[in-house]
């Protein structure tokens, strides 16, 4: 299963993509905020989004799955 995981612990600030969307490797998909700093999470692989596992305001830990690709 191809997934996009959080690169740091923080709160989900913005979702830049939605299910069904085709994304490419390197694309920013989610913006996390932690300790007054915003960090974009980018996809490591290309694919079509099957599921977005988080919502705005959710707290995630480093390594948590944010997005599942088909």
């Amino acid at each position: 299963m191809k997934v996009v995981t959080a690169n740091m612990a923080g709160v989900v600030l913005r979702l830049m993509v939605s299910p069904g969307e085709q994304i490419t490797s390197g694309q920013d998909v989610v913006c996390l905020e932690s300790m007054k700093m915003e960090v974009n999470v980018n996809a490591m692989e290309s694919g079509k989004i099957k599921e977005v596992k988080v919502g705005i305001g959710d707290f995630v830990n480093e390594g948590d799955v944010l997005i599942v690709l088909e």
Binding site: N7, M8, A9, G10, S34, M35, V39, E62
Partner: peptide
């Protein structure tokens, strides 16, 4: 994180 400089709560 000492490598990425990202916050690490």
């Amino acid at each position: 994180d000492p490598v990425t400089f990202f916050p690490a709560p």
